[in-house]
């Protein structure tokens, strides 16, 4: 297993902390939105945007860029926080989340937000679009990679499995999927609402390379990405065990924080914890 240099690890950890703070602040300001599934994916997106992906914030449509698709579109706050932190747009924009005329819509809109690769929000559709991007990359013999974040509840959508089948059939080894396996969806625990488990076995059965990791451990995330890049002839699914609401004690593993914004007081408590 690759081991990140302590300096790099500290850098990523610090970025993750900033991103969590942005998520909390923008949601409190917006008054609505989805903290739980944004906080669970912070390390995954931080690793992609601050370690792995070839991207240019000054040229968001650079043809050779790696692509990231947030299929679980309600996780928009984590994507927006990362894009702002990366310099795709000024951080002040985060405070206009969900406001009329904002570049930051409630769910990702590729026409309004620099760095958003495809509009999502209706669950189950992002992986299909990522398939198209990966297929185009193969067709054009470009070296870019396509990364996707799926929710675990999102796996209940039938279209996901159409897309999973297709990616394996077309041998899309330039495609890497993360499953944000936080175990909760709006109505409750995934295995009570409609169990998509066992998740790794399902991807394996569709002829995917499957890696299981702790989705909050940077060493494990980056090691899995490296393995996915080496895998030839099939796509990789990284099933990342995460904690919904991670980083804010009163939000962790609480289903009620799937789609509810913190009050000003709750925001202050959360920020204090994150800065501690």
């Amino acid at each position: 297993m690759s081991k990140l240099a302590q300096e790099k690890l500290n850098f990523l950890t610090q970025k993750a902390r900033e991103i969590r703070k942005s998520i909390i602040m923008m949601l409190a300001e917006a008054g609505s939105g989805h903290p739980g599934g944004s906080l669970s994916a912070v390390e995954l997106l931080t690793a992609l945007y601050f370690y792995e992906m070839k991207i240019d914030p000054q040229n968001p449509r650079w043809e050779e860029r790696d692509r990231f698709v947030l299929s679980k579109g309600h996780g928009a706050p984590v994507l927006y926080a990362v894009l702002a932190e990366k310099g795709f747009f000024p951080k002040e924009e985060l405070m206009k989340l969900r406001k009329l005329g904002s570049i930051l819509q409630g769910h990702p809109d590729m026409k309004r937000t620099p760095g958003v690769e495809i509009s999502t929000g209706s669950l189950g559709q992002g992986l299909s679009a990522a398939n198209g991007m990966a297929a185009a990359g193969k067709l054009d013999k470009k070296g870019y990679r396509v990364f996707v974040l799926l929710g675990d509840g999102e796996l209940e959508e039938g279209q996901i499995w159409e897309a999973v089948m297709w990616a394996a059939h077309y041998k899309l080894d330039n495609l890497t999927v993360f499953v944000d396996y936080n175990g909760l969806q709006i109505d409750g625990p995934i295995n009570e609402v409609m169990s998509p488990e066992p998740i790794p076995d399902k991807f394996k059965a569709f002829n995917w390379n499957v890696i299981e990791i702790d989705g909050h451990n940077f060493n494990q995330i980056i090691d899995a990405i490296e393995k996915a890049k080496k895998e030839k002839g099939r796509p990789t699914a990284i099933v990342a065990k995460t904690i919904k609401g991670k980083g804010v004690s009163f939000m962790e593993n609480q289903v009620g924080w799937h789609g509810k914004a913190p009050t000003k007081e709750e925001m202050e408590r959360a920020i204090a914890e994150l800065e501690a």
Partner: peptide, 8 residues
């Protein structure tokens, strides 16, 4: 969806 990705 694939068509959307190809177009993107």
């Amino acid at each position: 969806g694939i068509a959307a990705g190809l177009a993107a």
